[in-house]
C-alpha cells in the first residue's frame, strides 16, 4: 500500500519545492525591511560549496556541514550587509547583484579548491546517508515494504518538510514579535522608524543576515540533495528565479513566497506533457498574473477575505443554516 504511493519522482519534485520555499522566504525576509537583495543566489552558493567541501574533504557529518554552510553565508551576509545597507532600492539591488557575480567568479577561478567550472561531484547525498546510517543499526526499508530508493526520497522529503515547517513557524513568530514589528516599521518609513527609537542599522543588518543564513542553508541542502554543484547553478538566473517566487506569490505576507515557490516549481513539471512549449506557458502565466495582480497573488486583503469567508461558513454550519446549501 505505502510502496505504491511512493514515487521517487514526485518526492524529488516535492523536495525541490521545499528547498525553493526556503529560498523564497530568504528573499521575503530582506524584503520585509524594504531592501531588495539579489545576492541570495551568491549566498546559496556559499552555503552549498562550504558544506560540500567540508563533507568531502573533512568527512564532516552532513548536518554539521549544512550548519557550517549556513553560518558562513550568514557571516558573509553581515560583512556585506554593514557597508552596503546604506544604499537603498535600485542601488542596493545592483550592489547585491554584483556581489552574487563576484561569488560565482570566485568559484570559477579558485580552481584548486572548487574545481572551477567543472563543478564538484560526489557530494554525500542526504537520503543515501540516512539509509546507510539506518542500515548500520540493522534497519531495512523492506520491513516497511519500501524499495531502497523509495525510502531515500521519502526520508529526504520528510526531513525537508519538517525543516520547512520549522522555518515557516519561526518566521511567522518573528513577524509578530518586536523584531517583526521593527521590520515592518522600517519598511513603511525608515525616518519615522528611527525617530521612534528603532535601531535601523541593527535591524536591517539582522534581516540581511537572516536572509543570507537562510539562503546558505537552502544552498547546502540543495548540494546534498543533488550531489553535484557547479558555479553555473548560482548565477544571476538563480537570483532572478528566487525573486520571481516572491514577486509572483506576493511579498506582503509569508504565504506569498511559499505559494510562489510551490506554484512556480510545480508548474514546469505539470506542464511536461507539452514539452518544448512549457516555458512559454510558464512565462505567459507570470505575465498575466503580474498584469492582474501586481502586488503578487497572495496579499493581506486576500488572506482577510479567506479568513472571514472561513468564519462565516463555520457559523452557518454551526447554526444549522441550510439556506446556503
Amino acid at each position: 500500500m505505502l510502496a505504491e504511493l511512493i514515487n521517487p519522482y514526485h518526492f524529488q519534485v516535492a523536495s525541490f519545492i521545499l528547498i525553493n520555499i526556503i529560498l523564497g522566504i530568504s528573499v521575503y525576509i530582506t524584503l520585509s525591511t524594504g531592501q531588495l537583495s539579489l545576492a541570495n543566489a551568491g549566498f546559496m552558493g556559499i552555503g552549498a560549496y562550504t558544506s560540500a567541501l567540508l563533507t568531502i574533504h573533512f568527512d564532516l557529518p552532513i548536518v554539521l556541514g549544512i550548519i557550517a554552510g549556513a553560518l558562513v553565508a550568514a557571516l558573509l551576509g553581515i560583512l556585506i550587509g554593514i557597508p552596503t545597507l546604506r544604499l537603498q532600492g535600485v542601488y542596493l539591488a545592483i550592489v547585491t547583484l554584483g556581489f552574487g557575480e563576484v561569488i560565482r567568479v570566485v568559484f570559477i577561478n579558485w580552481e584548486s579548491l572548487t574545481k572551477g567550472s567543472v563543478g564538484i561531484s560526489g557530494i554525500p547525498h542526504i537520503g543515501r546517508e540516512i539509509l546507510r546510517v539506518l542500515k548500520g543499526f540493522g534497519f531495512d526499508p523492506k520491513v516497511i515494504g519500501l524499495q531502497n530508493n523509495q525510502f531515500i526520497f521519502l526520508s529526504i522529503f520528510l526531513l525537508l518538510f519538517i525543516i520547512t515547517i520549522g522555518v515557516i513557524w519561526f518566521f511567522r513568530r518573528q513577524h509578530r514579535s518586536r523584531v517583526g514589528r521593527a521590520f515592518a516599521a522600517i519598511k513603511l518609513d525608515e525616518k519615522a522608524a528611527e525617530s521612534m527609537g528603532i535601531n535601523i542599522t541593527y535591524y536591517k543588518v539582522l534581516a540581511f543576515a537572516q536572509g543570507a543564513l537562510l539562503s546558505g542553508f537552502a544552498g547546502a541542502l540543495y548540494a546534498h540533495v543533488l550531489a553535484y554543484i557547479s558555479p553555473a547553478d548560482f548565477a544571476y538566473h538563480r537570483a532572478v528565479e528566487i525573486l520571481i517566487f516572491v514577486v509572483f506569490g506576493g511579498s506582503e505576507v509569508i504565504w506569498g513566497p511559499i505559494f510562489g515557490a510551490f506554484f512556480l516549481t510545480l508548474m514546469p513539471e505539470v506542464l511536461r506533457f507539452i514539452s518544448e512549449y512549457r516555458y512559454m506557458i510558464y512565462g505567459l502565466i507570470i505575465i498575466i498574473l503580474m498584469a492582474v495582480r501586481p502586488q503578487g497573488l497572495i496579499d493581506v486583503n486576500l488572506l482577510n477575505w479567506v479568513k472571514t469567508k472561513g468564519k462565516k461558513r463555520g457559523q452557518k454550519h454551526g447554526t444549522g443554516n441550510t439556506k446556503s446549501m
Binding site: 521517487p8 524529488q12 519534485v13 543533488l226 513539471e269 511536461r272
Partner: peptide
Amino acid sequence: QDQALTAAQKLINS
C-alpha cells in the same frame, strides 16, 4: 541539473 534529475526520475519511476 535539477530539471534533468526530475525528468529522469519521472522516466525511471512513472
